[in-house]
Design a protein around this nucleic acid. Sequence first.
DNA 1: GTAAAAACATACCGACTAGTATTTTTAGTT
DNA 2: AACTAAAAATACTAGTCGGTATGTTTTTAC
Lengths: 200, 200
Amino acid sequence: MDQVLKSQRTKQLILDESYKLFYEHGFKTTSIDKIMRTASLTKGAFYHHFQNKKELGLTIISQKLQNRIYDKMISPLYDQGDASEIILKTFNERLNSFSLYEKQHGCSLNNFINEIGDYETAYQSAMKRIVDEWKAGLIHVLERGKSEKTLRDELSSAAIAVYIISAFEGIRGIRKLYNDDTIIEEYKLAFINYIQQLKK
Amino acid sequence: MDQVLKSQRTKQLILDESYKLFYEHGFKTTSIDKIMRTASLTKGAFYHHFQNKKELGLTIISQKLQNRIYDKMISPLYDQGDASEIILKTFNERLNSFSLYEKQHGCSLNNFINEIGDYETAYQSAMKRIVDEWKAGLIHVLERGKSEKTLRDELSSAAIAVYIISAFEGIRGIRKLYNDDTIIEEYKLAFINYIQQLKK
DNA sequence: GTAAAAACATACCGACTAGTATTTTTAGTT
DNA sequence: AACTAAAAATACTAGTCGGTATGTTTTTAC
């Protein structure tokens, strides 16, 4: 079954390289030719593994984007501990882990959303699934905090979750315009303050 | 001077049509041919009025985007009245004025930022100018509120301004993924709440 | 009423695009 | 060693891209 393994590796290579190129140069403006040249493969190999560019895009969204957001931003929200601490820690750790490369090119999900979020319903719903899962994770920890009486319960958890996600995705875009981290630091200050005032 | 007038009208037509097409389909993926076909003109006319696509892009940013943001989001911030009310009113009025078309396609500035914010420094700094001006408007009204003792002064106005802008731009992108306004309503709730808690 | 200049149109270039059809290479089986 | 089927490479189609060179029409100035 060595052939199966090699085939899987080739497919994964195509996914990895195209993810990188989409992230750096956009989805619509990255050609299959470019991807396969980067992967040192040819177009024939591509159309062996994928039906068309759309299938590749959907795979990138539902696998690469989904997994990245889940591992770094959603999964930690289900950890044990004080609710506001969990949220602070999750977002701060992510913010502090950004490389220059990631700061310059923003959030891959946000890039996809803004480029093809209004393009085709298939892409739309694939990305919606990720945002909904993220929102659900935040609602979960917020509700837990409320029931444990550590968080105020005047405002709906859904509203708070949406506001947190919006601001985070927003700053990932805006940071692209700057050459230093001032704007990120300002965001961080406000974010910490926002979470603090949710506490009882 | 009729010739001058006609020439100006043609240039303005090119700007208007290209703005619309960029907004709906993206900057990089909208061709000069497409723009001129939409404007019922030819490529010769385009290269008479603009050196190249880059000059068109920069003009769109520094004129169309700049003016839209300034008129609707920045200028009202310098009005008289209670600081928190001014902010609430400015953002709420904009949020309530969105057509379905605008909800589906997001914020034109945000789209540009996420598509070409990491593409070329010329675009970058043109857009940075807009964000900085917006941020300055918010800082102005926040500082006024603080000096008038209607707003708390623990948190830096710059941080608050960045957080407000980030969340607003973020939600404009995320809304693209949904077919109804639930997510916008949730954002609005959280936004109003955020401004309320800034008050003394 | 004519010449210069500005405004726009037409035709084209070489490079690139998504996608397809065909051929060659590779690996596993008999 | 012969055969087979999957994987990958090559060649190609029909069309688009940004940009240029040159032609034609319209307007202005004298």
